[in-house]
Protein backbone atom coordinates (compact mmCIF):
# COMPACT_ATOMS: atom_id res chain seq x y z
CA UNK A 1 0.00 0.00 0.00
CA UNK A 2 1.36 3.42 -0.86
CA UNK A 3 0.32 6.98 -0.21
CA UNK A 4 -0.50 8.77 -3.46
CA UNK A 5 -1.52 12.05 -1.88
CA UNK A 6 -0.95 13.28 1.66
CA UNK A 7 -3.09 16.12 3.06
CA UNK A 8 -0.78 18.78 1.58
CA UNK A 9 -0.81 17.06 -1.82
CA UNK A 10 -4.58 16.73 -1.63
CA UNK A 11 -4.96 20.46 -0.93
CA UNK A 12 -2.70 21.26 -3.89
CA UNK A 13 -4.70 18.95 -6.18
CA UNK A 14 -7.98 20.55 -5.11
CA UNK A 15 -6.36 23.97 -5.72
CA UNK A 16 -5.42 22.94 -9.25
CA UNK A 17 -8.98 21.77 -9.92
CA UNK A 18 -10.48 24.98 -8.53
CA UNK A 19 -8.15 27.15 -10.63
CA UNK A 20 -8.84 25.08 -13.71
CA UNK A 21 -12.60 25.44 -13.15
CA UNK A 22 -12.37 29.21 -12.57
CA UNK A 23 -10.49 29.59 -15.87
CA UNK A 24 -12.61 27.05 -17.71
CA UNK A 25 -15.91 28.59 -16.63
CA UNK A 26 -14.97 32.12 -17.73
CA UNK A 27 -17.35 33.48 -20.32
CA UNK A 28 -19.98 30.78 -19.74
CA UNK A 29 -23.45 32.21 -20.16
CA UNK A 30 -25.42 29.23 -18.83
CA UNK A 31 -25.92 28.84 -15.07
CA UNK A 32 -23.50 26.25 -13.67
CA UNK A 33 -24.07 23.32 -11.30
CA UNK A 34 -21.48 21.13 -9.63
CA UNK A 35 -22.91 17.62 -9.39
CA UNK A 36 -21.09 15.10 -7.21
CA UNK A 37 -21.34 11.41 -8.00
CA UNK A 38 -22.13 9.48 -4.82
CA UNK A 39 -20.38 8.79 -2.70
CA UNK A 40 -16.78 9.93 -3.33
CA UNK A 41 -17.63 12.84 -5.62
CA UNK A 42 -19.91 14.59 -3.15
CA UNK A 43 -17.27 15.94 -0.71
CA UNK A 44 -15.05 17.04 -3.62
CA UNK A 45 -17.94 18.92 -5.24
CA UNK A 46 -18.64 20.64 -1.92
CA UNK A 47 -15.03 21.82 -1.58
CA UNK A 48 -14.93 23.05 -5.15
CA UNK A 49 -18.23 24.91 -4.77
CA UNK A 50 -16.85 26.70 -1.71
CA UNK A 51 -13.71 27.68 -3.64
CA UNK A 52 -15.71 28.94 -6.61
CA UNK A 53 -18.06 30.87 -4.33
CA UNK A 54 -15.03 32.57 -2.70
CA UNK A 55 -13.97 33.66 -6.21
CA UNK A 56 -17.40 35.14 -6.88
CA UNK A 57 -18.70 32.25 -9.01
CA UNK A 58 -22.03 30.94 -7.67
CA UNK A 59 -22.93 27.35 -8.62
CA UNK A 60 -25.90 25.10 -7.86
CA UNK A 61 -25.40 21.94 -5.84
CA UNK A 62 -26.58 18.43 -6.73
CA UNK A 63 -25.67 14.79 -6.44
CA UNK A 64 -26.28 11.61 -8.39
CA UNK A 65 -26.53 7.99 -7.26
CA UNK A 66 -25.86 5.89 -10.36
CA UNK A 67 -26.75 2.46 -8.94
CA UNK A 68 -29.91 2.07 -11.05
CA UNK A 69 -27.96 2.98 -14.21
CA UNK A 70 -25.06 0.58 -13.77
CA UNK A 71 -24.17 -1.84 -16.55
CA UNK A 72 -23.08 -4.58 -14.14
CA UNK A 73 -26.22 -5.15 -12.08
CA UNK A 74 -26.39 -8.77 -13.14
CA UNK A 75 -22.83 -9.83 -12.52
CA UNK A 76 -23.95 -11.62 -9.38
CA UNK A 77 -22.21 -9.21 -7.05
CA UNK A 78 -24.04 -8.17 -3.94
CA UNK A 79 -25.70 -4.90 -4.78
CA UNK A 80 -24.83 -1.82 -2.80
CA UNK A 81 -27.70 -0.03 -1.14
CA UNK A 82 -29.39 2.57 -3.26
CA UNK A 83 -28.49 6.12 -2.43
CA UNK A 84 -30.43 9.21 -3.28
CA UNK A 85 -30.23 11.44 -6.33
CA UNK A 86 -30.99 15.11 -5.86
CA UNK A 87 -30.77 17.72 -8.62
CA UNK A 88 -32.63 20.70 -7.10
CA UNK A 89 -32.31 22.95 -10.16
CA UNK A 90 -33.59 22.96 -13.73
CA UNK A 91 -31.25 20.59 -15.57
CA UNK A 92 -32.31 21.77 -19.02
CA UNK A 93 -30.16 24.73 -19.97
CA UNK A 94 -27.72 24.38 -17.05
CA UNK A 95 -24.02 23.75 -17.58
CA UNK A 96 -23.12 20.74 -15.46
CA UNK A 97 -19.74 19.81 -14.06
CA UNK A 98 -19.81 16.13 -13.03
CA UNK A 99 -17.48 15.62 -10.09
CA UNK A 100 -16.01 12.29 -8.99
CA UNK A 101 -13.07 11.28 -6.85
CA UNK A 102 -11.47 8.57 -9.02
CA UNK A 103 -11.80 8.04 -12.79
CA UNK A 104 -11.09 4.45 -13.82
CA UNK A 105 -13.01 2.49 -16.49
CA UNK A 106 -15.37 5.35 -17.34
CA UNK A 107 -18.44 3.17 -16.73
CA UNK A 108 -19.61 5.22 -13.76
CA UNK A 109 -19.47 8.36 -15.90
CA UNK A 110 -21.44 6.68 -18.69
CA UNK A 111 -24.09 5.76 -16.12
CA UNK A 112 -24.08 9.30 -14.70
CA UNK A 113 -24.56 10.81 -18.18
CA UNK A 114 -27.49 8.47 -18.80
CA UNK A 115 -29.12 9.42 -15.52
CA UNK A 116 -28.49 13.14 -16.03
CA UNK A 117 -30.21 13.09 -19.41
CA UNK A 118 -33.34 11.55 -17.88
CA UNK A 119 -33.66 14.79 -15.91
CA UNK A 120 -33.34 17.15 -18.84
CA UNK A 121 -31.05 18.49 -21.53
CA UNK A 122 -28.04 20.22 -19.96
CA UNK A 123 -26.44 23.15 -21.83
CA UNK A 124 -23.16 21.21 -21.62
CA UNK A 125 -21.48 18.63 -19.37
CA UNK A 126 -17.83 18.64 -18.23
CA UNK A 127 -16.01 16.07 -16.13
CA UNK A 128 -13.87 16.94 -13.13
CA UNK A 129 -11.97 14.25 -11.15
CA UNK A 130 -9.46 14.30 -8.34
CA UNK A 131 -7.49 11.27 -9.58
CA UNK A 132 -7.32 9.76 -13.07
CA UNK A 133 -5.92 6.24 -12.68
CA UNK A 134 -6.18 5.20 -16.34
CA UNK A 135 -7.51 1.88 -17.78
CA UNK A 136 -10.48 3.40 -19.57
CA UNK A 137 -12.94 0.93 -21.14
CA UNK A 138 -15.10 3.62 -22.77
CA UNK A 139 -14.29 6.76 -24.80
CA UNK A 140 -14.61 9.11 -21.82
CA UNK A 141 -11.97 11.68 -20.82
CA UNK A 142 -11.89 14.26 -18.01
CA UNK A 143 -11.82 18.01 -18.60
CA UNK A 144 -10.33 18.83 -15.20
CA UNK A 145 -7.88 16.51 -13.41
CA UNK A 146 -6.24 16.94 -10.00
CA UNK A 147 -3.65 14.19 -10.48
CA UNK A 148 -2.87 11.42 -12.97
CA UNK A 149 -1.60 8.16 -11.42
CA UNK A 150 -0.06 5.12 -13.12
CA UNK A 151 -1.81 1.97 -11.82
CA UNK A 152 -2.14 -1.74 -12.52
CA UNK A 153 -5.61 -2.97 -13.49
CA UNK A 154 -6.03 -4.86 -10.19
CA UNK A 155 -4.95 -1.96 -7.97
CA UNK A 156 -7.41 -0.14 -5.76
CA UNK A 157 -7.31 3.62 -5.44
CA UNK A 158 -9.21 4.98 -2.46
CA UNK A 159 -9.80 8.54 -1.37
CA UNK A 160 -10.19 9.09 2.34
CA UNK A 161 -12.02 12.40 2.75
CA UNK A 162 -11.84 12.23 6.53
CA UNK A 163 -8.02 12.14 6.58
CA UNK A 164 -7.43 13.93 3.27
CA UNK A 165 -5.38 11.10 1.80
CA UNK A 166 -5.33 9.07 -1.42
CA UNK A 167 -4.09 5.49 -1.10
CA UNK A 168 -3.01 2.94 -3.72
CA UNK A 169 -2.96 -0.76 -2.96
Amino acid sequence: MSLVLDPAGMAAAVDRLAEGLITGLQGQTAPVALVGIRTGGVPLAERLRARLAASGIPTSRGHLDITLYRDDLYTGLEKPLLGDTDLPFEVTGTGIVLVDDVLFTGRTIRAALGELHDFGRPAWVRLCVLVDRGHRELPIQPDFVGLRVETQLGDRVTVDWARDEVLLR
Binding site: D72, L73, T75, E78, F104, T105, R107, H135, R156
Partner: peptide
Protein backbone atom coordinates in the same frame (compact mmCIF):
# COMPACT_ATOMS: atom_id res chain seq x y z
CA UNK B 1 -38.53 -6.41 -7.93
CA UNK B 2 -35.15 -4.68 -7.93
CA UNK B 3 -33.78 -6.68 -5.00
CA UNK B 4 -35.11 -10.04 -6.24
CA UNK B 5 -34.34 -9.74 -9.94
CA UNK B 6 -31.23 -7.62 -9.58
CA UNK B 7 -29.37 -10.44 -7.87
CA UNK B 8 -29.65 -12.75 -10.89
CA UNK B 9 -26.22 -13.76 -12.09
CA UNK B 10 -25.35 -13.14 -15.74
CA UNK B 11 -22.12 -14.04 -17.58
CA UNK B 12 -19.53 -11.39 -16.96
CA UNK B 13 -18.13 -9.69 -20.02
CA UNK B 14 -14.56 -10.72 -20.62
CA UNK B 15 -12.09 -8.14 -19.36
CA UNK B 16 -14.86 -5.97 -17.96
CA UNK B 17 -14.37 -4.54 -14.54
CA UNK B 18 -17.10 -3.57 -12.20
CA UNK B 19 -18.05 -0.21 -10.81
CA UNK B 20 -17.27 -1.58 -7.40
CA UNK B 21 -13.61 -1.09 -8.27
CA UNK B 22 -13.69 2.58 -9.17
Amino acid sequence: LYLLLGSDGAPETAGGTSHAAD
